[in-house]
Design a protein around this nucleic acid. Sequence first.
DNA 1: CACAGCGTTCAGAACTTTCTAAACCTTAAT
DNA 2: ATTAAGGTTTAGAAAGTTCTGAACGCTGTG
Lengths: 157, 157
Amino acid sequence: MGEERLFADEVGVVLSGMGMPAAFGKLMGWLLICDPPQQTSTQLAQSLGLSKGSVSTGMRALEQLGMVRRVPARGRGYAYEMLPDALVRTVDARRLYLVIHDVMQKGIEVLGGDESLPRAQRLRVTRDFYAFVAERVPQLIDEFARKEGLSQRRKDG
Amino acid sequence: MGEERLFADEVGVVLSGMGMPAAFGKLMGWLLICDPPQQTSTQLAQSLGLSKGSVSTGMRALEQLGMVRRVPARGRGYAYEMLPDALVRTVDARRLYLVIHDVMQKGIEVLGGDESLPRAQRLRVTRDFYAFVAERVPQLIDEFARKEGLSQRRKDG
DNA sequence: CACAGCGTTCAGAACTTTCTAAACCTTAAT
DNA sequence: ATTAAGGTTTAGAAAGTTCTGAACGCTGTG
């Protein structure tokens, strides 16, 4: 088994340690180093020893996260290709931050809606922090993109 | 069942949706709004309908993450109290970013160690990005802490 | 029109994780 | 020293998730 395959498996273990499916991580690891960068589902299944079903599910997830795109393949169908800034995008999940923001707001309301209440302190700080993060993370990513010369156009949400 | 309990349960659902144990989220939600802020294991188990074991495990995790601290309790033992900036701390998990950084570095080595290789682009960008994030996130947290007037002293690691 | 190649969906098996309950240990008061 | 209260650990049950393999649908080709 090649070193590249071993690398893919290792990414699988790392991601699995973060609470995601192992197949998801394997696919990610493989797409990060494979040659050519474009791979069909069949190729992925064979290269990684995964069932077609696992590949289908995993690639759907990667696509939904915006880490992977489909490109036309020679002949019929399409192939998958990882974007150069795939993992950069995962940090840009503002929705995640806002979920926490909203829960904290709800907590304040449970306490009566008075933010100055001592009991509401923890909730308020947390809420404001996640609003802050949701605002700043995109800026951070832009800064990095500029520094790297990535042509990263940002659509604000 | 009180609204506060419902809020705790809801946080449990949200956290569970992010891949963490539900009991963990329940404890977090409860500690965010409970009165008084100090709670013993027994109180937590009763208030949330959890077994003593679940509380013990969950509180260990919360303590290890630095979100909760023990305070002396009247009489014997201690009580738990959530820190005002508990959730701020969770974002400061630099180790997490560096894990990804290291995996990317390993991938570059699998490819022969030549970063200028086209095939190594994705790996290099990702590696550099996570180094960037690991450097900037602490700054971001400091900025927020200053703005909020939180006495957040930072030890650099 | 029939066929071959691909990809998706779905049901079940295997696995991992979480929760509980009971036994055990520690601490403090009498 | 004994006892009662509280906390931790552990084994086992319960629940949830992921993976696979087979059936299905679609698309283009001969």
